[in-house]
Amino acid sequence: MAEGAERPTGDWQPTELALELADTAGEIEAYLAELGRFWAEEEQALIQEVAEQTTYGAILLEDLIRRQLRLGLGVAALFIGGLFSLPIAYLFMPELMGLRLFGLPLGWLIPAAIIYPFVWALAWFYAHRARRYEEEFRELLR
């Protein structure tokens, strides 16, 4: 294997390993086999890494999953809490529920109209945050 000439400037460049391009069927097969081994090993290594659960990538993935789950649960709890409070608000805050907007009482307007943009906003918020978590994950793995 030829080595790259070392230049006097002190630079180091990775050397080129010269391989003759094969032109007979047998050599092609040999290279195919070597290729197969090479990629199989890489695949094995990846599977090994994930299965061992101790590597950087696996730990980060678990962290990502946990964060996204927490985010989902948080948004869900927010929504459920708000929704469940609604019927009861009528008993504890009747004047507020009776407040008129566009001729309709607030208590009616909320489930009949206002809640929909609210749900949409929650959805958008979740997606935004989830995407950010994923980007952070990608950054750390690069």
Binding site: R70, L71, L73, G74, V75, A76, A77, L78, F79, I80, G81, G82, L83, F84, S85, I88, L91, F92
Partner: peptide, 25 residues
């Protein structure tokens, strides 16, 4: 409307709300 179940439910709802906010921030 009996007040006890109402109060309980309201507490659960508030707990859910609080939990949600806590999880998020």
């Amino acid at each position: 409307m009996e007040t006890l179940p109402l109060v309980l439910t309201e507490l659960m709802a508030l707990a859910a709300l609080a939990g949600g906010i806590a999880l998020l921030i």
